[in-house]
Design a protein around this nucleic acid. Structure first.
Lengths: 169, 169
DNA sequence: TATTGTTATACTCTATAACTATA
DNA sequence: TATAGTTATAGAGTATAACAATA
C-alpha cells in the first residue's frame, strides 16, 4: 500500500507551481475528501487490518480466520451455513476457508447425527490453543496500540458508533 | 484496563438445543467479536459503501470514482501518479479507472507541456456538473441518513477518530 | 539511468448457478 | 420439493514486472 501523508496543507496552491514536476514534494489537498465518512472509514479499516496481520503474524491468522475461530468457539454445535452467514461469508466461499483451517488442524467438520447433510464445526485442541494465543497477541499488541492512539475511552466510543452503523444503517 | 476479556458465555448453551436444525431461528452469539475493532470496522464500511451507492445510484458513481473526481477538482494541474498515490491506488490500476471516467466524459487526460510523459487530469464540464450533483446527493441523502443514526456531533467525532487511525496507526 | 503511463498477469474477495446427498 | 455442502466460474480489487516514450 502507500504512504501516511499527515502533511499539513496550508493554502500554498498560490505558490508558483503551474504543472506536475514543478515541485515534486508538494502534497495534495484532500479537501472535502477528509470529511467523507466512507473514505476515512476505508483508509482506517486498511490500517487496522494491516496492524492486525502484523500483530498475529506468528500465528499466520487473517482477521477473517480469527473471526471464524472466535465464532466457532462461542457457538458450539453450529453448522457451516450458520457460522458463515453470521460473518457475512457466502457458503461457497466458506468452503476453501474451512479447508484451510482444517488442513492446519485448527478446526474440524463433524457430520451431524441429526441431519446428515450438516457439518458441525468445532475447534481442535490446537485450534483452541492457537485462538488463546491469538487473543493474547491481539490484546497486548493490537488493542494496546489502538489505545495508544485513541485512548481506551475513545476506543470504546468508536466501537459503539461503528456497531450502530453496522446494525442500523 | 484494556478489554473485557470475560465474555459471559451466558449459560443458555445448556438450553435444549443439541444440534443444528434443532431450532432454526436461534441467533448466534457474537461474543468477543462485537468488541473487535477490525470486525465492526469492516462491517460498518460495507454498510456505508452500500448506502453511498444507493444514494448516488442515479449518477452511477462508486465511492472510489467519487473520490477521484473530488481530488481532481481540488488539485488542478496534477498528473495520474499524484492523484492515484494520494488515494492509495496503484498506478497500473488507475489506468482502467480513468479510462472509464474519460469514456463517460467526466474527466480528461491532458499531455503536460512541461513533461511530456505526464498526463494532467482535469474535470470536464460534464464532470463538474456530475460532481456537483453527487455532492448534493451525498449531503442530503447519505450524510443525512448518518446523522439520523449517530447525530451530527457524533458523526464529526467518528470521522476525527477514523482519520487519526488512518494517519497514525 | 530514472520516471510516466501502460500492458500483462496473478492472487484475493466476492457473487451466482448448479451439482450431490440428504431430508 | 427443499436444504447443506460443494464445485465451477466470473467479476471486482489489488499487487508486481516489464515495456515504450520521455526526461
Amino acid at each position: 500500500m502507500t504512504v501516511s501523508k499527515t502533511v499539513e496543507k496550508s493554502a500554498e496552491v498560490t505558490k508558483s507551481r503551474k504543472d506536475a514536476g514543478d515541485n515534486p514534494a508538494e502534497a495534495l489537498h484532500l479537501g472535502e475528501l477528509s470529511e467523507q465518512l466512507g473514505y476515512v472509514l476505508k483508509r482506517a479499516q486498511l490500517k487496522v487490518f494491516e496492524n492486525f496481520l502484523r500483530c498475529v503474524a506468528s500465528l499466520q491468522l487473517t482477521p477473517a480466520q480469527f473471526s471464524v475461530l472466535l465464532l466457532v468457539e462461542q457457538n458450539p454445535g453450529r453448522n457451516q451455513t450458520e457460522i458463515a452467514s453470521t460473518l457475512g461469508i457466502l457458503r461457497p466461499n466458506f468452503v476453501a476457508m474451512l479447508d484451510n483451517l482444517e488442513s492446519r488442524d485448527l478446526c474440524a467438520r463433524i457430520r451431524s447425527t441429526n441431519d446428515r447433510r450438516s457439518h458441525i464445526l468445532v475447534l481442535t485442541d490446537k485450534g483452541k490453543a492457537v485462538l488463546t494465543r491469538a487473543k493474547k497477541l491481539v490484546a497486548t499488541k493490537h488493542e494496546a496500540r489502538l489505545n495508544e492512539v485513541l485512548g481506551a475511552a475513545n476506543r470504546e466510543a468508536l466501537i459503539a458508533m461503528l456497531s450502530k452503523i453496522a446494525n442500523e444503517f
